[in-house]
Simulated scan of single mutants.
Amino acid sequence: MWFQHSPGIRREFPELAAGALVANGITSSADVKIDHLLAEARLRLRDHSPAELDEIQAWRRTFAAMGLKPTQYRSAAESLLRRFAKEGELPRIHPLIDLCNAASLAWAVPIAVIDVGRVAAWLEVRHADGTERYETFGGETEHPAVGEVIFADADGYAHARRWCHRQSGRSAVREGTTDVLIVAEALHESAAADVASLLTTLSDAVETAWSPPAQAALLTATEPRIEF
């Protein structure tokens, strides 16, 4: 299998910094430590609202460039930050999801967590052609609009809509998930360094909680793909 951003996405958004991590042997019984990440998020939000953060502003500009209203369609990181700022906590779902949500809060960067057992052959961030199928968490099927940025696989399933706005219920991590792909994406000025730091933190945490070494890579315009 492989994951990459399409050449078209790379040309349109040259400032994109992305990292991918592949992990096997995931279970729902692991104990992950996230309090330090939540503390970092609280510190980040002490003097700024989510919308004021450079990381979030960069995604808002990107959503506007895609023809989306940034206050109607938010990046997953902004949605998490808004909920965390309001409630002070996040619900526990699955140890891997909890870890990635906490890291997303700490870095203000959207992180996708995908069950690769539910992905056909490969996964590419690209513009939709209008034939793809997206399964909601409620079990409904939608068809992304032509040109919408999606995570698409070889069978024509969209595993995320509006880039990092919302993932699909089809490949969501669940009780029986064992093999995952984690993707972090950012477009702000220090995105490359921040994604590298985030990827290191996630790799260390995954290896501590689940033991098998994680395969990680920074993805660039010249090396856009991770194979696994």
Rank of each mutant, 00 (worst) to 15 (best):
A214C: 10
D155G: 07
F63N: 03
A64V: 05
A76W: 05
Q215W: 15
S79H: 02
D194I: 00
V206Q: 05
A217P: 00
A154C: 06
E227D: 10
A217N: 05
T178N: 07
W122S: 10
K86H: 15
Q215F: 15
V183Q: 01
L38M: 11
S6T: 01
L96K: 06
F3G: 02
A51C: 12
T178R: 15
T200Q: 15
Q4W: 08
R92S: 13
L181K: 02
R133D: 07
H127G: 12
L219C: 09
S104D: 05
T177N: 09
R74F: 02
T141D: 13
A77Q: 09
I182L: 12
L68I: 03
P14V: 04
E140K: 14
T136C: 08
P110C: 06
V195N: 03
L99T: 09
P50F: 01
A191S: 11
V183L: 09
L105A: 03
V119S: 01
S6M: 04
R161V: 13
V149E: 10
R174I: 05
W2F: 14
T178F: 06
F63L: 06
F13C: 04
A58V: 06
A85P: 08
A102G: 11
E15V: 12
F151V: 03
S49Y: 06
Q215P: 08
I150D: 07
R162D: 07
L96R: 04
Y157C: 04
V183P: 01
L123H: 00
A58S: 07
P14G: 08
L218T: 08
W59T: 13
A41V: 14
F63W: 06
S197E: 14
A191W: 00
I9H: 10
K69N: 15
D47W: 10
L198I: 04
E89G: 05
T141G: 06
I56C: 01
I226Y: 03
H48Y: 09
E12H: 08
Q57S: 05
V119E: 00
A145H: 15
M1L: 06
R174F: 03
G138T: 11
L16C: 11
H165W: 08
P224H: 01
A77T: 11
L68Q: 06
I114L: 10
N24V: 09
Q215V: 14
L43T: 14
G25K: 10
R92W: 05
R126K: 12
E78H: 01
R82N: 15
A20K: 03
D204T: 09
H188T: 05
R44F: 04
P212S: 14
L96S: 07
L219Y: 07
S168D: 03
S79V: 07
E140N: 14
T27S: 14
A77G: 13
E227Y: 10
P70F: 09
G156Q: 12
E175K: 14
A30M: 13
A103S: 12
D194Q: 03
G130V: 07
Q57P: 00
A58C: 03
E148M: 11
T200M: 14
F151P: 00
W163K: 02
F151E: 00
E55G: 00
R11L: 08
N24L: 10
T177W: 04
A76R: 13
T136N: 09
S6E: 04
H143L: 11
E78D: 04
R126T: 15
A51P: 02
E227F: 02
